[in-house]
Design a protein around this nucleic acid. Sequence first.
DNA 1: CGACCCCTTGATTAGCCTCAACAACCGTGG
DNA 2: CCACGGTTGTTGAGGCTAATCAAGGGGTCG
Lengths: 250, 250
Amino acid sequence: MSVQGDLLGGSCLAGRLSHYLALTQSEQEALDQLEQHERNVKRGAVVLREHDSSRELFVVRKGWLYSFMLLGNGSRQITRLHFPGDLIGVSSLASGRLAESVVAVTDAVLSPFGKDKLAALFRLHPRLSALIFSLAVAERVAMADRLASIGRTSARARIALLLCEIFARMKIIGTGRESLHLPLTQEDIGDATGLTAVHVNRMMRGLANDGLIERRGSMVRLIGEDRLVAESAFVDRFARIDSSWFPDPA
Amino acid sequence: MSVQGDLLGGSCLAGRLSHYLALTQSEQEALDQLEQHERNVKRGAVVLREHDSSRELFVVRKGWLYSFMLLGNGSRQITRLHFPGDLIGVSSLASGRLAESVVAVTDAVLSPFGKDKLAALFRLHPRLSALIFSLAVAERVAMADRLASIGRTSARARIALLLCEIFARMKIIGTGRESLHLPLTQEDIGDATGLTAVHVNRMMRGLANDGLIERRGSMVRLIGEDRLVAESAFVDRFARIDSSWFPDPA
DNA sequence: CGACCCCTTGATTAGCCTCAACAACCGTGG
DNA sequence: CCACGGTTGTTGAGGCTAATCAAGGGGTCG
């Protein structure tokens, strides 16, 4: 299934979750509830601001965004990219305040919903709760992968990992082509991988020279995806979620 | 509340969760269910092995452990330290296989329980589910902090952050004294912060020289905790959990 | 058309790693 | 109780990766 919300007008989140689970009618309806409103944001717009308190979450319906943290020394760490079907603003669920800012990389469409809706989900749909929890766990694992990547591998491997991750996630949301428009600047890629823009440039050039990727402007194509996966030790943590332990749907 | 399971014989997990929420009788009982068995492990023992499939989780009742990943190039990344009241093996919930290995740093006592017990929790105790979910979110945020630390700060700041985190977490579980026995080797600290043992040594010596910490063998005392927090930009993500959005207890 | 952003490239520097040697400590077995 | 081997901590010298500094070119948007 590669249902995309923006093709259906239906729920993007339901589209995403149905990759992992055949949703019941009632589950589907509960998820549709979350996307009754829409909000358009422009490329470059700050959607959420670190330290602000927030009573809402958002489903990404369209576009790319990323979360990042600003450090005391003026540098920035991009902690996660967000694609259609992702939830953003989740970090405010823990402490009530946002731990990360979110900006739109491209023009984007979001669906805001209140945290009370999530509470209702926990109350009425234990199986969906387990799935959402499992996706949070998968995200934690993917973050551990990146931690290992930044802590223990070369600049080249870090960039290879980021590219593998992006392409794998695009595949899941059904926009996966062999060639991809990459709206990130080299500075963005640096802030995601713990490198400087200058060094990102040299490394990407190196990957291109070695025939692992092909670049035409902002279009990127993975030629030696196998070799990229090998170099970065990429594991797709979102390909499959083990639902065998989930409770039965309500 | 600074209830510790190993002092009560009661549930360590309940002790931890009751920091954040006043548990109902029925919630308390559900959590006690999870710790009916005990397993002792020796210092250095491998408790869980990366890539293995696992049908269980564990509550830590006593001792220190850590999760780590092994990389293709022979290096190791420690992804998380585990103290009494923590859940371990969670990474297998997502894909069915463990993303991290776990070893015991000190002799430890664990309580294994099946994933079906967790499913029952999701079905019967939506408020606990929301809390456990929120703690997973907090853990993700803490991991993002470490990502930023490793990606964008100096060796000294990374070590300062690790120390702040350890002391803050010890405080929550009630073992927080000003002085602490640190059972980690400098190699462990290096694998947690993305540094070599040699460089960890130099940095810790530097922190000691500057009067931020005091070391006597494996005992460590934070003298200038304020300055350490300032240097590392530490934020305690587990001090408080916002339960205002949680559903009512069942 | 101009201003700005982004990419590119070169030269130099700095922070951390590697290698190496030795000292201190610990658990073990005799 | 002591002797021993292995692990951990400490220190120095030198090398390498990635950062920093600097400058120019191309593209895009107003």
